[in-house]
Design a protein around this nucleic acid. Sequence first.
DNA 1: AGGTCATCTCACC
DNA 2: GGTGAGATGACCT
Length: 191
Amino acid sequence: MSAIYYKSEQLELIVLVSFNYGSKDGRVHLKNIKFFKNLEEVTSYLDENKLELIENRDFNNFDSIEDLIKILTDYFSGKSINLIEEINSLNIEIDFNKKFTTKFSQSVIRTVMQLKRGEITTYSEIADKIGSKAYRAIGNVLRNNPLPLIIPCHRVVKKSGNIGGFMGKTNKEWEQNLKRNLLQLEGVTRV
DNA sequence: AGGTCATCTCACC
DNA sequence: GGTGAGATGACCT
């Protein structure tokens, strides 16, 4: 599996995208998106997961990946784009892992994917929408989101108006800051 | 079966 | 407006 990263200077953030090539269609299959504070974290993650890093200069061999980086650049510069639409227009296959197997988690993901840029909702609103009371279990599903941004889980916040969790809760302050920054990029000032 | 969890509500202060 | 306990349902081992 290969990986590329995009570095946002303003946000002190590195976005690592993992992908490989489908054995049948030869297209780029997007596997994973992950956020890091610095390059040290990135390299140890690359080691742990045996990922091959593609450097910038090699991009011309990876057309659709280069396009993806452009889209991320636009997004992180605050441009008003619909990420999901843009990515769908590329020659890229989005793998939803086999992670979401149950009907419940699939409904959650489907609902979250309908959120547009700058549109926020709450865990309990999603529960209402899919006819469940398990607002807490929704956080459980989103915690394992392999494709943040594409599955825009940062747009789901707490009903109280607080920001809510992001990427697990191991480094709560940094994670919540990132979630807030992403929303601010999209013009959300409330949280 | 029992533990975990990116929540919510309500009762305090 | 902050905190803590209890309810809670889906998921994982």
